[in-house]
Design a binder for these strands. Structure first.
Lengths: 257, 257
DNA sequence: CGCAGAGTTGATACCAGTCAACAAAAGTGG
DNA sequence: CCACTTTTGTTGACTGGTATCAACTCTGCG
């Protein structure tokens, strides 16, 4: 009974916690905004009760009412193409904006699904743009955050043009590691929030190929995998594999003997 | 001599032609902006002398001073990855914004190269955002155009996740046809502004595979190709190939007999 | 006319997709 | 708490599509 009360109190405190005290302040929209302006932004941000794994923030065809930022947990955005194939457009960690896909015509092209339970900030888009019009610093920051989202798209495309499955997988792990570092989590030891199938549909590979790729990376001593738990044991080698084409034929044959 | 004078006069007229008379008005930034606001935007737009094939609008590392819109012709954006591989991020036809890749941190990640001689409008970015802050309609339109650029990125990724080379090629031709239709050119007969190698690096394929793919599409009666000249002879079939997985094995074998 | 760049076509090897069986982990209900 | 089911992940065998290397043809251009 006492515990319950404590828990509820904590939740209320957490709910009242505004952008000024959020641990993501340096990554999220508030970055680079003055204290006074921050209050203006803080007013329009809605903090939602935790969403459960599998919950959706929006679906294809929904009008773009808000953009979202997870304060913890992880999301995936999925688009279903005309032939029924599900493609994963992106994984979204804490502090990364979700929902910009509707910017073009005002309607979402994909759905955002929680991979874990997560706390989400919701920012009504109409409010955001009208406040941004009055605060140049917020307008700049909004464009910057949109640009970062664009950069992640470009990173994804740089993965997808690679022809070797191992390169794609190495790039994926490398990029994820970077992003965990950015949000203050461990970059060398983390638990993947997504399944092998999700990874496969993100990388444009068969799920068996992803599984084999993980195994091979482990055999080469680059990572250690236990299901979704990943440790990067040779960061330098992972970087090399991510950025340079695979080992030269001579080395390859040598390994096969 | 007379001809030269005429030509120069025409050029001057063309140079003075503002957004209000541009044939791209309905596609470009001005779309949906009132006449009064249009004049404000028109003031900051610089019209540049024609650029030649191979000229660059910006290079990696350049600060984002402007965004660009071609009024005719075509561009490609290219990023060189750490291992020296050149990847093509996009092809840009008339009316499609170029230069948003620097939105994230203010510096370009890629270079924009003219595929043909082209006339370009240059919009200094600082001016654009400051005018946008005062004109809600321009702010909305700016976000919409950014969103459309984002959508083209998503389309590109939807091509790249496809595993069959023929699907990628069909999707590429289908998307290009759509875009030619949008800018008022023929959607069924056009001259590709880019080489087979450019297409290959855009699709994540070997150039020989692109060449073979074109040949096969021609053999199947879907298109007719003469070098860079392309006619779409069976639009319905092209759409089908672009959106649905390749023909079932039975049909495939039948063709091979 | 000859040259260089662009595009096509052929032969071969190999990587990754597919089908299938199995193992491990995570729920589920008694 | 344990047996059961379901989901998720791993591994193996085989096939096919695509990259690669190489020769050749075509096109435009000085």
């Amino acid at each position: 009974m006492y515990q319950m009360t404590t828990s509820v109190t904590l939740d209320l405190v957490r709910l009242r916690q505004g952008c000024a005290h959020c641990s993501l302040q340096q990554l999220c929209l508030p970055a680079g905004i003055g204290a006074g302006d921050l209050a203006r932004l803080d007013e329009i941000v809605r903090r939602r009760r935790p969403v459960e794994r599998g919950d959706r923030l929006f679906r294809p065809g929904d009008p773009m009412s808000s953009v979202y930022v997870a304060r913890d947990g992880a999301f995936k955005t999925v688009s279903v193409s005309e032939d029924g194939e599900e493609q994963i457009l992106g994984f979204h960690l804490a502090g990364e904006l979700i929902g910009l896909d509707a910017l073009g015509d005002g309607f979402h092209r994909c759905e955002a699904i929680a991979l874990t339970t997560a706390n989400v900030c919701e920012v009504p888009f109409a409010d955001l743009t009208s406040v941004a019009a009055q605060l140049p610093s917020l307008q700049n920051q909004l464009l910057r955050v949109i640009g970062q989202s664009l950069n992640r798209d470009t990173d994804h495309r740089e993965i997808l043009v690679r022809r070797q499955a191992n390169e794609r997988i190495a790039l994926f792990l490398h990029g994820l590691s970077e992003r965990y570092r950015l949000i203050g989590s461990s970059a060398l030891s983390f638990k993947l929030p997504m399944s092998r199938e999700d990874i496969a549909r993100f990388l444009g590979l068969a799920l068996e190929t992803v599984s084999r790729g993980f195994t091979r990376l482990q055999e080469e001593g680059v990572i250690a995998v236990h299901g979704r738990q990943v440790e990067i044991t040779n960061e330098v080698e992972l970087d090399r594999m991510a950025h340079f084409a695979e080992v030269e034929p001579a080395t390859r044959q040598a390994r096969r003997i």
